[in-house]
C-alpha cells in the first residue's frame, strides 16, 4: 500500500483470454460469456465458468441495453469528473462502466441506458460506455 505512485498504467488489452471482447468492442459489439453446460452467463469473462467450472464457455453478443444499478461522479478539484456506474444488462449480468453524454445530476438508479463504444484515451482500448436511452 505504501510508497506507490499515482500513475495507474492501463492494462494492455487484448489479453490472450479475452481478446475477442476487445476486438468486438472495436466493431461496436458487447460480448459476455455464457456456459454451454450450466447455461449461466457471467462477467467479467473467464476461460472457465465461475458457476460450474466447465471450460465450455462461449462468447455471446448482447444487446448493450440495461439499467443503472448504481453510480457516482468523482469530484476532481471541485469539478465533476467521470461518472462510474454498475450497469445491469438485460441479459442478467452487471458490469462496471462509465455513464457519458449525460448530466450526472439527471441520472437515477433504474434508468435505462445503452452501450456506446469509444476510446477514453487515444492509445487505450475501445470501451463499452453507456448513455441514457
Amino acid at each position: 500500500m505504501a510508497d506507490v505512485k499515482k500513475a495507474r498504467p492501463e492494462p494492455k488489452p487484448p489479453q490472450m483470454d479475452v481478446e475477442a471482447f476487445w476486438t468486438a468492442a472495436e466493431r461496436e459489439e458487447l460480448l459476455i460469456k455464457e456456459c454451454q453446460d450450466c447455461g449461466e452467463p457471467h462477467f467479467y469473462p473467464r476461460m472457465v465458468c465461475p458457476h460450474c467450472l466447465s471450460d465450455r464457455v462461449e462468447w455471446k453478443a448482447v444487446s448493450g441495453r440495461g439499467e443503472i444499478y448504481s453510480y457516482s461522479t468523482l469530484m476532481r478539484k471541485g469539478q465533476p469528473g467521470h461518472t462510474i456506474a454498475f450497469v445491469r444488462l438485460e441479459e442478467g449480468v452487471t458490469l462496471m462502466s462509465n455513464i457519458v453524454d449525460a448530466d450526472p445530476q439527471g441520472l437515477s438508479i433504474g434508468q435505462p441506458v445503452r452501450a456506446v463504444f469509444r476510446k477514453l484515451k487515444e492509445d487505450g482500448p475501445t470501451l463499452p460506455l453507456f448513455i441514457p436511452v
Binding site: M1, V4, R8, P11, Q15, L74, L127
Partner: peptide, 27 residues
Amino acid sequence: ASLVLKAPDPDAPDLPFELPFGPATQN
C-alpha cells in the same frame, strides 16, 4: 501516495474490465 493500492497486476483477470472506467476507493 494516492489511495490506489499498488501498480496493477497485468495478470489480474478482473482489472481490464474495471480500471479503464476509473474506479477509485471513494467512488
